[in-house]
Design a protein around this nucleic acid. Structure first.
Lengths: 100, 100
DNA sequence: TCGCAATATTACGATATCGCGATATGAAAG
DNA sequence: CTTTCATATCGCGATATCGTAATATTGCGA
C-alpha cells in the first residue's frame, strides 16, 4: 500500500475531479461506451460547448481521461483501469442485496 | 446499474468529499484501523481541533463515516463497504497486478 | 491563401469551500 | 448548581471552483 503524501494528493485530486455530477456522468458514459467525441457529448448533455470542453480538460488534467485527435474531432476515452473499476463499484445497483 | 440523477448526485458528492488530502488521509486510516476517536486523530495529523472536527462532519454528511458516542469521546468508523473497497483500489501499490 | 467546423482557452462575476479562532454543547464528576 | 474534558458549531476573510460568453486554435478543403 502506498500512503505517501504525493500519492494521497494525486489521488484526492482525482477524486475531487470525479466529484462533480456532470463530470461523473461523462465518466460513466465513457466506462460504458468506450469513447466518443465532444460533439456527441454535447448532444446528450445540454450544456454549452465551452462548459463540456472545460470539464473534459479537467478530467484530462487529473489523469482520468485521454484525448486522441482524428482530423477535426477529438475522441476521449478513460485513461486508466482504476477509474473504470471505481465507477463499476459505485454504480452497480441493488443486485446482491435484493431488499428494498 | 443505477445511473439516475439522484444516484449520480449523491455519488459525486461522496467523491468530492473524499477528494481532499486530509479527509482522504482520515479515511485511509479508518480503513486500516477500523475506528478511533477525534483526539487520536488530532495527534497524528497536526491540525487544530476545529479543523479535524469539521472534516469529520463533512465525511459524516456525505455518508462516508459514522459516529458513536461513548461518554465524552466520539468514535468514528467507515459507514459503508464501498468506500473501503475504493480505498483499497486506490492505494494498492504500483506492482498491484498480482493476485490479492 | 481563405473560410469553416470542431474543439480549446481565456476572462470574469457568482458561488462554494477553505482553515481556524472563538464559542457553544453534552456528558461525567464534584 | 459549577467545572472540566471532548467534541461540535459559528463566523468570516481568504482562496478555489463554478458556468459560460467571447475569443483563439487547429485541421481540412477549396
Amino acid at each position: 500500500m502506498d500512503y505517501t503524501i504525493q500519492h494521497l494528493q494525486k489521488t484526492s485530486e482525482m477524486l475531487k475531479t470525479l466529484g462533480h455530477p456532470e463530470r461523473l456522468c461523462i465518466v460513466t458514459r465513457l466506462a460504458r461506451q468506450g469513447s466518443f467525441n465532444v460533439a456527441a457529448l454535447q448532444d446528450c448533455m445540454s450544456l454549452p460547448q465551452s462548459t463540456v470542453s472545460t470539464h473534459l480538460q479537467k478530467l484530462r488534467a487529473a489523469g482520468i481521461v485521454e484525448a486522441r485527435r482524428q482530423g477535426l474531432e477529438v475522441t476521449y476515452s478513460l485513461k486508466n483501469e482504476q477509474v473504470k473499476q471505481i465507477v463499476e463499484l459505485l454504480f452497480q445497483s441493488t443486485e446482491g442485496k435484493k431488499h428494498e
